[in-house]
Design a protein around this nucleic acid. Structure first.
Length: 570
DNA sequence: GCCGTTTTCGGCCCGACTGTTTTCAGTCG
C-alpha cells in the first residue's frame, strides 16, 4: 500500500515548489495528494486498471510520476528537487507563523535548514538582522518551536466535548451573546480535532472579545481583533473565535465548518453561477449585492444544491451528489433501535447484565446485545465454557425482569491461526457472535489477511469487530488487505462493526465507504464496559457512519427486531 | 500541473490579523 508514501512525496514537492516561488503548481500537487489520500483502495490497484487519471487532481504528468513511484519506489524529479533545496520544509512549516516566504529568507540570509538551526539563530538574536523580521517575530517563532516540541497529538473528539460545552455555557450566560455555534472539524464529527472554531452572533463585539480573551486556562493570546480572535489554552488547544452579524451568520458557519476543499469547490460553483462566496455571504459577482448569508440552507439552495450535512463536507463527491439531488439520507440518532457489543462484569466490564440492560432500556433502546470475551486475552477475564453457561443462564433470567430484548452472545478472539476457541456448532446456538483480533497484531499483511478470512469462512460470525484494531494516537491499524476482508465478510453474511469507542472509531469513514461499495452491511456498537459508554459511545459510531455516507438500509441496528433476528441466523 | 454548463488556453478562493512597514507582505484559516 503505497498511498500514504505517494501523498507525502506529492505534498513535499508542493512545498519545495512553493519555496521556489513557482506559481499554481503547488496547488495542483496538493490537490492530487488529497485525491490519493482519500482513495478508498490501494493505489496500485487503480494503477493496474489504468485509472490513475480518474483520481481527482491527477492528470497526465502526475500520473506518470505516481507510476514511477509504484514501479521503482523512487521519483527522479523529487530527488532532483530535494538536491536543489536542502531544507527541512516539513519541520519548519510546522511552526506557526512560518511559511514558505520566510523559510526561504531564513535560508538565504542565515543558512537555516531545520528547526535546530532556527532555534540556535533565535537564541543569538540573529533573525532581527533580516529585513522584515523583528523582535516580535523572533519571540513568536521561539514560542512556536517550544509549542511544537510539546504538542505531538490531536485531541480526541470525545475529549473536546466537555471543553466545547464549558465555553458555550460561559458565553450563553451573557445577553450580548445572541447565538454561539462551534464549527470546524468538530462540527464535521472528525475523530480528532486540531483546534476549536466558535462563531458568536452579537452586536457588541468588544464585550465578546473581552470575555473571550479572559477565559480561564489561557496560556497565550494569539490574535485579537474586532471580529476575530485566537487563544491557546494551557492544555495546548487553540480556540478561534469569530464575531458575526445575523445577515452573515450562515455563510460564516458554512465557511468555518469547511473542510477547506469543500469550501474551495463551493466557491468555484458560486463563480460559475455568477456569484462570489465568502464568509460574509453569497454576492452577485457584478452588482456585489447580497444574495444569501443568514443560513447555510439558503446558500446551498441559491447554488442549486441539496443541503449537505456537515459530516459529508469533504469534497469526496458530495457536491456532485447534491447537484444531482442524490445525497444519501444519512442515518440519525433516532434510527438506532439497539446496540451491539456490550461487556459486563462476567469479563472486563464494570456492571452486571441487569444494570447494563436497565441503562439501555432507560435510554429507550429496543434491544441490547451482550458480548463478553471468550479467548486468549487473560487481561480481559475471558469466559471458559463453564462460565459461559452460567453467563447465558443469567441473561435468560434477566430477560424476565425487563421489557427490553436481550440478545446473548460473545466477543471471541480470532487466534493467530485464524481459528476460534469454540466450535461452530456451539457458536450457532448464540444470538450474536462477534469476532475480533486482540493479540499478535504485528503479523505481515498476507498472514493477517489469511487469519481473518479463515475465521470468517469457517465459523458463523455475525459481526467482525473493530476490523483494523487501531487506537487513535496510540496504536496503528493492523496490516491487512481490507478489500479482501470486506469481500469475504460480504460472502459470509458477516456485518462489519463500526465500533463507537472514541479511541477506536473502527471502521473509520474511509473504510466504510470502501466497504459499502463492495456491498457490505454494518453494525453499530458501543463496545461498552460501563454505563456511560452505553449512553455516549454509539454516538461516535453514528458520526463515523454518517461521515461514511450510510443510510438506515446499510445498518442492522436500524431494522426491526424480527428482521434483525432473521439476518443473524443466516 | 490541472481542468472545462464560458474555456483545449487561460484561468486557478477569499479576507482578517500581525509585524514591520510608511502602504504592505506574509501567514492563517
Amino acid at each position: 500500500m503505497k498511498n500514504l508514501e505517494i501523498v507525502r512525496i506529492l505534498n513535499n514537492i508542493a512545498d519545495i515548489l512553493e519555496l521556489k516561488n513557482v506559481e499554481f503548481k503547488p496547488m495542483a500537487y496538493r490537490k492530487a495528494a488529497q485525491g490519493v489520500e482519500f482513495l478508498s483502495e490501494d493505489i496500485e490497484e487503480v494503477y493496474k486498471r489504468g485509472e490513475l487519471q480518474e483520481i481527482p487532481g491527477v492528470g497526465e504528468h502526475i500520473a506518470k510520476k505516481i507510476e514511477e513511484i509504484i514501479k521503482t519506489g523512487k521519483l527522479k524529479y523529487y530527488n532532483k528537487l530535494k538536491k536543489e533545496v536542502k531544507i527541512d520544509i516539513e519541520g519548519l512549516k510546522s511552526i506557526p507563523g512560518l511559511g514558505p516566504k520566510k523559510i526561504i529568507q531564513l535560508y538565504k540570509k542565515l543558512k537555516i535548514k531545520n528547526l535546530k538551526d532556527l532555534e540556535k539563530a533565535i537564541k543569538k538574536n540573529k533573525l532581527q538582522t533580516i529585513s522584515g523580521f523583528g523582535k516580535e517575530t523572533e519571540k513568536l517563532l521561539l514560542k512556536g518551536i517550544i509549542f511544537i516540541k510539546s504538542q505531538p497529538k490531536r485531541l480526541l473528539y470525545s475529549h473536546a466535548i466537555p471543553i466545547v460545552k464549558e465555553i458555550k455555557e460561559t458565553f450563553q450566560k451573557f445577553n450580548f451573546v445572541k447565538r454561539i455555534e462551534v464549527a470546524g472539524s468538530f462540527r464535521r464529527g472528525k475523530e480528532t480535532v486540531g483546534d476549536l472554531d466558535f462563531l458568536i452572533l452579537s452586536n457588541q463585539p468588544e464585550k465578546v472579545m473581552k470575555l473571550f480573551t479572559s477565559l480561564p486556562d489561557i496560556k497565550q493570546i494569539l490574535a485579537k481583533g474586532t471580529t476575530r480572535g485566537s487563544i491557546r489554552l494551557n492544555n495546548g488547544l487553540q480556540i478561534d473565535l469569530r464575531i458575526l452579524k445575523e445577515k452573515e451568520f450562515g455563510s460564516a458557519l458554512l465557511y468555518f465548518t469547511g473542510n477547506k476543499q469543500h469550501n474551495i469547490e463551493l466557491r468555484k460553483i458560486a463563480l460559475r453561477k455568477g456569484y462570489t462566496l465568502s464568509e460574509y455571504g453569497l454576492f452577485n459577482l457584478k452588482t456585489k449585492k447580497l444574495i444569501a448569508g443568514k443560513t447555510e440552507e439558503e446558500i446551498y439552495k441559491k447554488l442549486n444544491l441539496q443541503y449537505i450535512p456537515p459530516e459529508l463536507r469533504t469534497n469526496l463527491g458530495e457536491l456532485q451528489a447534491a447537484q444531482n439531488n442524490s445525497l444519501p439520507k444519512l442515518v440519525t440518532e433516532k434510527d438506532i433501535k439497539g446496540i451491539f457489543h456490550n461487556h459486563t462484569n462476567y469479563s472486563d466490564g464494570n456492571y452486571s447484565i441487569l444494570e447494563m440492560a436497565q441503562q439501555a432500556q432507560k435510554l429507550g433502546f429496543k434491544f441490547i446485545s451482550f458480548n463478553d470475551h471468550v479467548g486468549d486475552i487473560a487481561l480481559a477475564n475471558p469466559l471458559d465454557e463453564k462460565r459461559l453457561k452460567k453467563y447465558l443462564q443469567d441473561i435468560e433470567k434477566t430477560k424476565k425482569k425487563l421489557k427490553i430484548t436481550l440478545l446473548n452472545g460473545i466477543e471471541i478472539d480470532i487466534l493467530k491461526d485464524g481459528t476460534l476457541l469454540l466450535k461452530p456448532t456451539l457458536l450457532k446456538k448464540l444470538d450474536v457472535v462477534i469476532a475480533s483480533t486482540h493479540m499478535a497484531l504485528k503479523m505481515p499483511q498476507k498472514k493477517m489477511t489469511e487469519r481473518i478470512c479463515h475465521a470468517l469462512e469457517n465459523y458463523p460470525i455475525n459481526i467482525l469487530a473493530h476490523p483494523t484494531t487501531r487506537l487513535i494516537n496510540e496504536r496503528p491499524p493492523i496490516n491487512v488487505n481490507l478489500e479482501k476482508v470486506f469481500q469475504t465478510a460480504k460472502k459470509n453474511n458477516t456485518f462489519l462493526e463500526i465500533n463507537g469507542s472514541p479511541k477506536r472509531r473502527d471502521l473509520n469513514s474511509t473504510h466504510i465507504r470502501m466497504a459499502k461499495k463492495i456491498g457490505c452491511k454494518f453494525a453499530i456498537s458501543t463496545d461498552a464496559h460501563t454505563l456511560s459508554h452505553i449512553k455516549d459511545d454509539y454516538n461516535y459510531a453514528l458520526l463515523e457512519a454518517r461521515r461514511g455516507g450510510l443510510e438506515t438500509k446499510d445498518i442492522i441496528n436500524c431494522w426491526n427486531l424480527s428482521k434483525i433476528k432473521k439476518e443473524l441466523e443466516k
